[in-house]
Simulated scan of single mutants.
Amino acid sequence: MKTEKLFYKNQFLSSCKGILTEINEDGVIFDKTVAYPEGGGQIGDIGYLIREKTNEKIEFFNTTKIKGRNIFLEDFPSIKVENLIVHHIDKEILKTLEIGESFIIKIDTEKRARTTLHHSGLHLALMVLETIRPNIRKSIVGAKITSTYGRLDFATENKFSKDELLLIEEKSNSLIEEGLEIVTFPHKEEKEALYWQCLDYCIPCGGTHCENTKYLGKMKVKRKNIGKTSERLIIELSEIENFRNLYL
């Protein structure tokens, strides 16, 4: 059995009803969820579960994915789809739950919204960076997207200069002000293999994203030296519009 990922049908859903289908040592799995699991560098959602039988409110402090089906598509990274999604809760509470119970699953929309914006903002910065250093995406060796920053790690000995950082920041903020459309769409052969696109720049990504650059506010771009042959690009967003209000 797989978990139905409602965030792919409507990423602005903030809650849903789910039936408990499995309990493991880390948490609980439902037939469906609105909670995005950790993956592709993006942190997992947090929130709480309401146990309908008792109206008990149970915090989940992370969301991850397990199992799934491997896919191998041309010009697309190898990923797993049709995963089970684990909502991590206090281990003591696990002992009290029963398979088949109904729960309401609610996510922390403030954290999701800010993480979503930093994810799209990071792609925008990469889009600009590739006009300066073409095909640098092939050198990406790591990523992290949280509610307060986004970062990309590159395998390169060529450190980012102050002029490059300033150009990335200025151009990204200019694109934000333009209010450009952002679209996500599936691969023609696999609905969970998704792309992110702004203008003519397209990159594989299954994370959550805003639908327009106008929501991104103001971007600050920094670098960090993480080794002789590695370099880190970091973006932080401020003056973010109230994107959270879009959640249902």
Score class of each variant (00 low, 15 high):
residue 2 K to I: 01
residue 5 K to S: 10
residue 7 F to Q: 14
residue 7 F to H: 10
residue 7 F to V: 04
residue 9 K to N: 09
residue 11 Q to G: 07
residue 18 G to D: 01
residue 19 I to N: 06
residue 20 L to T: 01
residue 22 E to L: 02
residue 23 I to G: 07
residue 27 G to H: 14
residue 27 G to C: 02
residue 31 D to K: 09
residue 31 D to F: 03
residue 32 K to P: 04
residue 36 Y to T: 01
residue 38 E to P: 02
residue 40 G to R: 02
residue 43 I to K: 08
residue 44 G to Y: 05
residue 54 T to Q: 03
residue 56 E to W: 07
residue 57 K to Y: 05
residue 59 E to G: 01
residue 71 I to W: 01
residue 75 D to T: 14
residue 79 I to E: 01
residue 82 E to P: 01
residue 84 L to Q: 15
residue 93 I to Y: 03
residue 94 L to R: 13
residue 97 L to W: 05
residue 103 F to A: 07
residue 104 I to S: 10
residue 106 K to I: 00
residue 108 D to Q: 12
residue 114 R to H: 11
residue 121 G to Y: 09
residue 122 L to F: 03
residue 129 L to Y: 07
residue 135 N to W: 00
residue 142 G to N: 06
residue 142 G to F: 09
residue 145 I to N: 05
residue 147 S to G: 07
residue 148 T to I: 09
residue 150 G to C: 11
residue 156 T to D: 07
residue 161 S to G: 13
residue 167 L to P: 04
residue 168 I to Y: 08
residue 169 E to W: 05
residue 169 E to S: 11
residue 173 N to H: 03
residue 182 I to C: 04
residue 183 V to Y: 00
residue 186 P to T: 08
residue 196 W to T: 01
residue 197 Q to Y: 02
residue 198 C to E: 02
residue 207 G to D: 02
residue 207 G to W: 00
residue 211 E to K: 15
residue 213 T to Q: 01
residue 213 T to M: 06
residue 215 Y to I: 07
residue 216 L to P: 01
residue 216 L to I: 09
residue 220 K to M: 13
residue 222 K to N: 13
residue 226 I to T: 14
residue 226 I to F: 04
residue 228 K to F: 05
residue 230 S to T: 14
residue 231 E to Y: 11
residue 233 L to V: 12
residue 235 I to W: 09
residue 235 I to K: 06
residue 236 E to R: 15
residue 242 N to V: 06
residue 247 Y to G: 11
residue 247 Y to L: 08
residue 248 L to A: 11
